[in-house]
Design a protein around this nucleic acid. Sequence first.
DNA 1: TTGATAAATGTTATCTTATAACAATTGTTA
DNA 2: TAACAATTGTTATAAGATAACATTTATCAA
Lengths: 162, 162
Amino acid sequence: MIQPLDLCRSQLPNVRQALEQAEVLCQQRGTRLTDLRRRVLEIIWNSPAPLGAYAILDVLRNDGRQGAPPTVYRALDFLLEQGLIHRLATLNMFTGCRRPDCCHSSQFLICRDCGQVEELSNPAVDELLRDEAATRQFEVLAQMVEVLGRCPNCRGVAFHAR
Amino acid sequence: MIQPLDLCRSQLPNVRQALEQAEVLCQQRGTRLTDLRRRVLEIIWNSPAPLGAYAILDVLRNDGRQGAPPTVYRALDFLLEQGLIHRLATLNMFTGCRRPDCCHSSQFLICRDCGQVEELSNPAVDELLRDEAATRQFEVLAQMVEVLGRCPNCRGVAFHAR
DNA sequence: TTGATAAATGTTATCTTATAACAATTGTTA
DNA sequence: TAACAATTGTTATAAGATAACATTTATCAA
Ligand SMILES: [Zn+2]
Ligand SMILES: [Zn+2]
Ligand SMILES: [Zn+2]
Ligand SMILES: [Zn+2]
């Protein structure tokens, strides 16, 4: 069976890098990046666009592995806890974190057409929201900032456009 | 049957105001705020915390009205289109818009404990995100900014705390 | 090495959120 | 009043997520 997307073990350089970094981080933290968890992370990184839990499950089953939704969601929970992936609330999907080494608040540019996601980490956004919260004596626990739109590719922005 | 929350036609001043404003806006726009749509808006405004679609459906059925999920979702779609309500992606819930008259991007402070929501509309946040997007030639279609945390009440912030 | 314990995964069932498809009703206009 | 469009009712189902318990695997002390 041929996969429509390249979700097999293609091992693009950035994917290998992400996996290696995850390995190191988990070792440092004393947490266990098991086969299943590593594979889920790999599936997410191999996808050009964020994936939903059930899409991940499909790939796992294609691997020949047994599993049901909890299998995937537990792996995702671990990866979220470790900051190795992010959940996109507007899409109910998951995407690999570009900076899993440092705790950060991020903003996402999500292309409506091709699904590609860009992860930003602009401290000014974070500060602005913290200021607004502080003014109202509101304690911030988490931020979700997602911008939906169209990426340059899907807009057909000319190559020479500065 | 007694309602746990005050979701009946309590007609708090701000609720009445919101409904009247919705009426006016729809008239100006030539859109139809039908009984069902008005009632759904009223249910949302009567609730101290945002409501899910199925919670709204429960109230409608308590009204003695017939209905199924599509009944509610269609009304919600209309209210969203008209900018009379917002959808909170992190909660899958809906809350009344505080400024339905003018198009705006908003930020939400959502209390994890009591569910209360504060709607902000800080243009600086909007601009910052637009700038980031523009830098990357990304066309912005919608923004979702939700801050999860704890409100002053739930933190037990002292009354005299400046 | 073995037994006890904790952690991770498998499995079944169920819950929540959302939509597709089509029928019936209501409103609008010619 | 007939024709048409918009709204609502109805049934069924898709999609996302979790609860509860069984089984397996890893860890560690004896
Ligand atoms: Zn990140
Ligand atoms: Zn795109
Ligand atoms: Zn608003
Ligand atoms: Zn609170």
